[in-house]
Design a protein around this nucleic acid. Sequence first.
DNA 1: AAACTTATTGCAATCGATTGCAAAGCATCT
DNA 2: AGATGCTTTGCAATCGATTGCAATAAGTTT
Lengths: 352, 352
Amino acid sequence: MVKNEMKKAITIKDIAKIAQVSESTVSRALRNNEVINKKTRERVQAIAKENNFKINAAARNLRLQKTNTIAVIILFNEKSGQSISDPFMLELLGTIADELTIQGYDMLLTTSKTTPGDWGNYYFESKRADGLIVIGQGEKDERIGLLAGENTPFVVWGLPDETKNYSTVGSDNIKGGYLAVSHLIAQGCKRIAFFGDIKHPEILARWQGYQQAHKEAGLIVDENLRTNLDFTSADGYKHAKNVFSKNVISADATFTGKNCPDALFAVSDAIALGAMKYFKESDIRMPEQVSIVGFDDIAQSEYAHPSLSTIKQNTKQGGVILVQNLLKKLKGEVIKTQLLEVELVKRESSAS
Amino acid sequence: MVKNEMKKAITIKDIAKIAQVSESTVSRALRNNEVINKKTRERVQAIAKENNFKINAAARNLRLQKTNTIAVIILFNEKSGQSISDPFMLELLGTIADELTIQGYDMLLTTSKTTPGDWGNYYFESKRADGLIVIGQGEKDERIGLLAGENTPFVVWGLPDETKNYSTVGSDNIKGGYLAVSHLIAQGCKRIAFFGDIKHPEILARWQGYQQAHKEAGLIVDENLRTNLDFTSADGYKHAKNVFSKNVISADATFTGKNCPDALFAVSDAIALGAMKYFKESDIRMPEQVSIVGFDDIAQSEYAHPSLSTIKQNTKQGGVILVQNLLKKLKGEVIKTQLLEVELVKRESSAS
DNA sequence: AAACTTATTGCAATCGATTGCAAAGCATCT
DNA sequence: AGATGCTTTGCAATCGATTGCAATAAGTTT
């Protein structure tokens, strides 16, 4: 029972010795280089397998100046203090992970909560990754702008911004806002509350869609109907209470007050679900008294009661395109910003 | 405007040249090795900073035979086809990510959906990572057992299993099941449906807790009350419909049938929330007609209506311990399997 | 049989950082 | 002055895989 294997890893040199060939031949044989005699190749490969040879990634990376790894950086809202939280972001992350694996890349993940922040240097310059994918909840982050100044290859999930010199992949947020609000207006709603923080560019775009829908319907936009909040159910609940209780709903719980919102467009399903809890508690009927449309189409929305109407983002497509664009960029191809289609999913919370 | 920087990365050799010292001195100075004269150290460090020197991780890893990287492997249910899906797993992943960053490690993430599967070899033997963290939805996976045979350092989230020779971190599932069901029994429930697949060891443990609570209360366990399903709201909904409609609820929607379950213990909140949708649709009142307790305490549970009682797993603690245990193991310390406390969170879905 | 291809293989340098050991510099002591 | 000891620095090997180029072997042509 002597443990003579010791943990000394087996290298190309060992294989070379066993196979009675040079290290270069082993290297070429393992990569199935045609220049090596087929018999030799197969023999070396067999020996490598028998001896459970595994290539040393560090050595290979050093020599090739390539890591076959992509760093994914998740920005998050400093305020809310949560790292990976929103279900939508997670879906996106999942598809990115899958696509990277399919493309033969490893994924280095970091949440910017604890990260020093100098990703370009940390991941790319120091050769930990060949490129970066940055995803965040629509926050503006100067660091992205800085990255663009360096020669780090990266792509960003978010709002296309022509003034920037980097390319992004993201949903058509203006259209999303427009679809949601047009739908609510079509249901007869006249005063539609908007729950979302327009400091985030993506949310601002949704607000623009909101305005556009109003203009088209000949309705006036009342800025007072807009509330800034976080992407959490907690905030959705809290602000629903604020906005819909105070001076809005008359004593008999019907909407009679002049300023009553009769609908809610929440910029994330998480927010909407939080708000719905308040409505339930207060016996405000949905959609009779308040129609609701969310954004993202997270899994839970279908199982809410009433089920939540929402704007579906194509996460699957988004993740795949992010990865593919980055890989194209690595090959030197020029890639362009991409706008993904969104779709209105009608459910009970806004049915007429 | 000559682009003379060219993308040629700056190395220790360059710094050495500029500082007029040898490469070894630069290396030592940058690591702040006391043996180098303080003045020299500071001068070299300043020069390195000025020139935006970033260490080449590949070279360093190769020389040191260490990567400062941990691979996190997320197993997933082959059937459901979803990769990162359950909110609970994601919370756990988030805390692991944070803790790894705090400890100065990078995190390589993979979902086993697309991964070849031979993680021990791929990540550890080929020196992509110093160790592995395996998390999964309680599935049995022979691959974990195989890992244990090799000398790959790893830790697993899951059920402590004394028959295995690897250590795990996980919640006290038996106690969780016991707490949930005792609580339901205390509320007067007599026939408690169990939604969960006992093929998963963790779920089996919860079922044992279920039985234990029954025994303690002098109640008989009816195996027919147990249903195997996936960790999804979709399955929760579907099976709630199956179990609670067929022969269970009398025409007037009150519970009169002999076999009526009067409560539900779901092994995940996602399942519970799916089931609740069915109850809402069918005007089955919660908790009057059916009391419900879930498992995990995901964010959404508090915002359901009625809010969902559940067994809270300490994800935060779990993630931190997983990481710390692995790092201890890397240092050669012996670590032991750890059982985390769980807690009953009483909310409206089971209030009396 | 000499000259020339063509197919295979090996030599040796390279990627960039680290470190044991030797050497040089300098001060102190006898 | 010479010996001794300490501080500081540099030389050169090493980690493991890859690849341009040279070398050898084998086959073909004249």
